[in-house]
């Protein structure tokens, strides 16, 4: 079931179209990657989900019904450009933000204690925010976003500003919350973390959605029949015979076994490639190369322009 979906959402700012009939569906209990180049309209869509702005047309669905204003208490939002009151104390501020999300003071206090103990930052409670480093502030913001146990969490570049160790901790927390049933919309330019975390993605470019689906399917779809082959034998023999049917992208004869990257041209298949190869050399390994999300992203966006 979809926890959240947007249906043909359009938003125009004076004469600039930020979103044009964009539809996305976020299945419950998954991590959904919202991707796109800068200025594509991701932030506008996220703001519409958070009811910060309203769409000109289109419908937003939440748990199978139209989204109500109350639903914002069930959403946790970590914006890309984020900050805290610099002169306010950490604990007080976290309490305030939790209460704004509908928690009672006592509940907010209890949850904050759990999180602060988990991250071992109890000693920060009475510190002013401006005394904390950027990474430390990010940690506090992360806690404030998830404090009220929202069913839908929206993280916009959640790992920026974190060192690798803290990034890993955050990643683990996100995966843990997913396991506990939370649905997560994840917006980032870091395609490695998309491959690692996202079950589904949607790609928005120039105010339109140009691609969506399960991450693996999309990578499958954009594979271009490139194979990585390790073999024993002479490269020159392959080279002589393969000129017409295949394109050899690279080859390497310095290792223990020789290797090459090969792409077959029209009308061929992996089966015939193997057949053709074994005529000349002994195959050690044979792998199809699936494009990385990074490659897919660049390819799709370039095609769209």
């Amino acid at each position: 079931m979809d926890l959240f979906s947007a249906q043909e959402v359009t938003k125009t700012y004076s004469n600039f179209k930020a979103l044009s009939e964009v539809s996305i569906s976020v299945p419950e209990g998954t991590i959904f990657g919202l991707l796109g180049p800068n200025g594509a309209g991701k932030t506008t869509l996220i703001r519409i989900i958070n009811q910060i702005t309203a769409p000109d047309s289109g419908t937003i669905w939440f748990q199978g019904r139209k989204m109500k204003s109350d639903d914002i208490y069930r959403i946790g939002y970590l914006p890309e450009e984020r900050g805290l009151y610099k002169k306010m104390k950490v604990g007080e501020q976290a309490l305030y933000l939790g209460m704004l999300k509908g928690l009672s003071r006592r509940d907010a206090m209890r949850e904050l204690k759990i999180w602060f103990e988990k991250f071992e930052i109890i000693s920060w409670w009475d510190k002013k925010v401006m005394e904390l480093s950027k990474g430390m502030q990010q940690k506090v913001q992360f806690i404030c976003t998830v404090l009220h146990k929202p069913e839908l969490m929206i993280f916009d570049e959640p790992f920026s500003g974190f060192d690798p160790i803290n990034s890993e901790i955050m990643k683990e927390e996100i995966l843990r919350m997913k396991k506990e049933g939370a649905t997560i919309i994840f917006s980032t330019h870091n395609m490695e973390s998309v491959e690692e975390l996202c079950d589904h993605i949607a790609l928005i470019d120039k105010s339109k959605k140009i691609l969506d689906g399960p991450t693996m399917n999309i990578r499958e779809k954009y594979k271009s029949n490139i194979f990585d082959v390790s073999y024993k034998g002479e490269f020159s023999k392959i080279e002589q015979d393969f000129g017409q049917k295949y394109s050899i992208l690279s080859h390497d004869e310095t290792g223990r076994t020789n290797s090459l990257k090969i792409q077959f041209l029209n009308g061929s298949s992996s089966g015939s490639l193997i057949k053709d190869l074994v005529k000349h050399v002994e195959i050690v390994s044979f792998n199809e190369l699936i494009p990385s999300m990074n490659e897919v992203f660049i390819k799709v966006v370039k095609q769209n322009s």
């Binding site: 910060i52 939002y77 914006p79």
Partner: peptide, 13 residues
């Protein structure tokens, strides 16, 4: 609130 960029967090509540 605008300069510290907390405003977007608050108006999501």
């Amino acid at each position: 609130e605008k300069q510290s960029r907390i405003v977007e967090i608050i108006i999501s509540s």
